[in-house]
Design a binder for these strands. Structure first.
Lengths: 199, 199
DNA sequence: TTAAATAATTAGACATCGTTCAATTAACCA
DNA sequence: TGGTTAATTGAACGATGTCTAATTATTTAA
């Protein structure tokens, strides 16, 4: 066939991302197949590659979608919260990961070839989540420590990520950890409310 | 051919694991190929599958090898250290991951099918690293907190893992973190030497 | 010594995957 | 109407994991 009026290029891209995200959410990164996505939206495999160029770029688009949904979820869950925002933020972090476990895991299972950087719009989506965390951390810190917010946010993001990763991968399960969220929260409180390191 | 006297079954298994580990260390999890391993050790693809049964079980064996090497490295680096063992432990953790980045990453990129547990000997290797960390954490804690050692070790392992994962994946790079080890160490000191959480 | 049983190894066949690209089809424009 | 352009296709390619019938070598038994 030729040019089709029923779907613009932009709409087609969106169809692929939507169906692809559904796919990767169901079967996970390892079993994800571009061909299957094509079949389900009624296009051929060639079209996928015309639109995205490469399997890697398709994955990048799907993971980007996950990041968008994740940030939106975090912001939605925190708005209006006045009680214990740090706790709520960490809980929401885990909630999203658990309820989108395959999509969330895919973000970390995928690796660009060595030396290749993620495109700017993808980096921007990571940054958006980071900015959210920075703002939240700054809020928790006493005024004299506001300068630490960015550095502390990076470290706390990594801390919570580690706990979440261990929770979803099953590592925590056979290490005997039954409350990953609680553990992550304890580390966060240590850092935000703790004294200066003794050494 | 038939039974070969030059390599017992056990030796063959070891050859495959050795070459497989070399492979996965070089090209990473995504590009690892059992066929390539077979070719390099001069056996056919069928033999690999006779010995390991499945691609997943082969990967499990390779990741198990990585865990063994990792624990051995940690213990070697800590023996005789009297100054700042916590710092040295975290440094060694990162050192191994950086110098075996593909093999280390493969441990976390691989996932068993849902509901399938890792075999006991694999779990044992994870546990061995965990036990090492527990002992180290117990050493750092004041006597009255020894009971917390296991729980704290789980949480610190996750914390350091998160920092290491972000460091190797490049996430820290574009978040502007230049000292992942220092950040991880700061969190560890917060937890070990910090006061009780205020809330 | 020879024959039967056993164990190890092979390589071809299969389905699926990402990727490429010449051919085809539909829409647009002059 | 005819020509240009853009979208779409699907066959072809090489590579992968997986399975299995056939083959080969070794050991055991007669």
């Amino acid at each position: 066939m030729g040019r089709r009026s029923d779907h613009s290029r932009k709409e087609l891209r969106e169809m692929i991302v939507a169906e692809g995200h559904r796919q990767i959410s169901e079967v996970g990164f390892a079993r994800f197949s571009a061909r299957e996505v094509a079949k389900r939206i009624g296009y051929s495999i060639g079209t996928i590659y015309n639109v995205f160029g490469t399997h890697d770029q398709l994955i990048l688009a799907l993971n980007g979608r996950t990041l968008e949904l994740w940030r939106a979820y975090l912001e939605r869950q925190l708005e209006g919260e006045t009680h214990d925002r740090l706790k709520r933020a960490i809980e929401a972090y885990f909630e999203f990961a658990v309820s989108h476990r395959h999509a969330w895991t895919a973000v970390y299972d995928f690796h660009l070839p060595e030396g290749v950087q993620a495109p700017d719009d993808y980096q921007g989506k990571v940054m958006a989540i980071f900015d959210f965390v920075v703002a939240e951390v700054a809020r928790q810190l006493p005024p004299e420590r506001t300068g630490e917010a960015a550095a502390l946010a990076r470290s706390l993001l990594a801390t919570v990520h580690g706990h979440c990763h261990f929770a979803l991968s099953g590592t925590f399960e056979y290490l005997g950890e039954t409350d990953p969220v609680g553990a992550a929260l304890a580390r966060a409180k240590d850092a935000v409310g703790g004294r200066e390191p003794s050494a």
